[in-house]
Design a protein around this nucleic acid. Structure first.
Lengths: 345, 345
DNA sequence: ATGAAAGCGCTAACAC
DNA sequence: GTGTTAGCGCTTTCAT
């Protein structure tokens, strides 16, 4: 009743284990006839090679890893993550490579997890949520495991990098707000230790030059609300607030409305990430789409190439786009209400 | 430069491999002194046991698997998934068990994936998106791998099941709509082959008795929109539409508004899943919260117990709750607008 | 309390 | 074109 092994298949086909192995790998010529017999035997026994045995023998896990150092509760409301994973998987699926995930909550566990990845669990890793000073980079380098860094990391490294232009849309957005007459534009950033938060905040500062209107949040709705409250209570309050993600933007938006402000007339609001419902809020939320799925695909492809021995490279993908919607519309014109029509197509 | 093995540690500590192994597993008494030496040596060499070697020797992968048969594009906008994974991971992390995921797009690949899981990749699997007639159940049973089924599967099985009450909130919702004066209440279901879609549709039918107002969608925004259009073009159109998820509800909601209907006055709308932005739409969307994170935790705990040899069990968690919001408010009363107050706390 | 040695199921030289 | 034989790095009898 125990699972069939390569030996069983070999016996059933009247050959040796090596032949079975090679019939599948193609690493040496096998006559069509025996190949036939081998496949038939395997099919009949429903044999599937043991991944651990194969991994041990080849020193290849046929899996790649992602270690997430996040509070599960935060992961739960993250809009980036599932789309990114979907992108990664769509590539891995084609190569019969699995994805091993591990969520950790402290540094010790994180090191252990990466070590485990490097020691047989995975052939390579994708590193997310880069910090400006990120210990993982030298750590992984020392460990010698193929790695792809996702984000605008500028430190020294020989790892492959997949970057996107997060600053461009921010510049564009601020310029747009200025044109619409806004003079006091605030920004609620994500944790500034993160490269992606930092890049967005940096772009904001470069464009506005108003550090006094910058606040550091943590991507949660709560921080979005609290920092919005703080900004709105300033003597000379901002007329527009940009946020580093949609969740904080929506929380700020709700807070403002609950306190009698109209969006966008009294306060313009913009998010980042283009959550799938952002366009359905009313007024619809201006945001920046970031195509996480595509980033997942590119990162996975890059990593598989690195694992296969290609030389590391830096890839920049053009996938961020400012989506101007009602929440940052110019104040003046009144909203157009569609007619009540009973004629539905 | 190659990674240290248990042999290196043993040599460094002046003992044999067996001793190192037992020092960690505790499966036989080791003197405090040698234990000390072993740990020191391991620490110094930064040794981490090879998971593939261990897996091969113990026939335990120290990982559990999830195979998703979904189009990556659909996964990308799924609100259930990240929270569920977060819940699963929060449990696995405590047990140093990894999660292996595989997304497949056809039956053959799906079988292969499950076989690979059963043949060394994973010690157990969690099965999602159950169908009313689900081939995977007998398949996995034959394969003999510990399995936890998530959902209200009623067929025969000896596997553990984790269920929730999805029907209750639907009954409650319909009753509420009736009380509010609605007589023609429609339902846009998910694919009826899925147990969870079916349960919701069944509850709808039991409560309303109007199969002519039931439509089968596929959980995407597009189908939500198209089926809403269809329902609204009926000679005697519904005054309320309930949807099997929030994405379809929002799409329907947008469609209705774009065609001049006011929500909830002209059309009441309710979703399911309580997407994290649902409460922030305006009007806020009535929905049913399902606590996917908790379901993930319970499923993972159950699976680890099964893997450890406990007898299979059925667990029912009470985690669905109807959240009545503005989109199903009784038509009559006018919306209360908060005063414009410049006093912000 | 510790050593020695035999596998786990596969791959990869090395033979012929 | 195919068989033989060592390992891969660990766990686990069986000895002592």
């Amino acid at each position: 009743m125990s699972r069939p092994t390569i030996g069983d298949v070999a016996a059933a086909a009247g050959v040796t284990k090596a032949t079975v192995s090679h019939a599948y790998s193609g690493k040496r010529p096998i006559s069509a006839a025996t190949k036939e017999r081998v496949f038939a035997a395997a099919e009949q026994l429903q044999w599937v090679p043991s991944s651990s045995a194969r991994a041990l023998a080849t020193a290849r896990a046929h899996a790649i890893g992602i270690v997430l150092a996040r509070d599960p509760a935060i992961l739960a409301s993250d809009t980036f993550f599932p789309a990114f994973i979907a992108g990664v998987e769509s590539v891995l699926a084609r190569h019969e490579v699995a994805l091993v995930m591990q969520v950790v909550t402290n540094r010790t566990a994180e090191e252990r997890a990466y070590r485990a990845m490097a020691h047989g669990r995975a052939d390579g890793v994708i590193v997310l949520d880069l910090h400006r000073e990120d210990w993982r980079i030298s750590f992984l380098q020392e460990m010698g495991i193929p790695t792809v860094l996702l984000g605008a990391y500028d430190g020294e490294t020989t790892f492959s990098r997949v970057r996107t232009d997060d600053a461009g849309p921010v510049h564009e957005l601020i310029a747009h707000l200025r044109t619409s007459g806004h003079e006091r534009i605030a920004h609620v950033a994500g944790p500034l230790g993160y490269v992606h938060s930092f890049v967005r905040a940096r772009a904001y500062l470069d464009e506005t030059g108003t550090p006094e209107l910058l606040r550091e949040g943590d991507f949660t709705a709560r921080s979005g609300r609290d920092l919005t409250a703080e900004l709105l209570s300033l003597p000379d309050r901002p007329t527009a607030i940009t946020y580093a993600n949609d969740t904080m933007a929506i929380a700020g938006y709700s807070y403002a409305r609950a306190h009698g402000l109209t969006v966008p007339d009294d306060l313009a609001i913009a998010g980042f990430d283009d959550d799938h419902l952002a366009g359905h809020l009313s007024p619809a939320l201006t945001s920046v789409s970031t195509d996480p799925q595509r980033r997942g695909e590119v990162a996975a492809e890059r990593l598989l190439a690195d694992v296969a021995g290609e030389t590391h490279r830096e890839v920049t993908i053009d996938c961020t786009r400012l989506l101007l919607r009602e929440s940052t519309a110019a104040p003046a014109p009144t909203t157009v209400r569609p007619l009540l029509t009973k004629e539905l197509p």
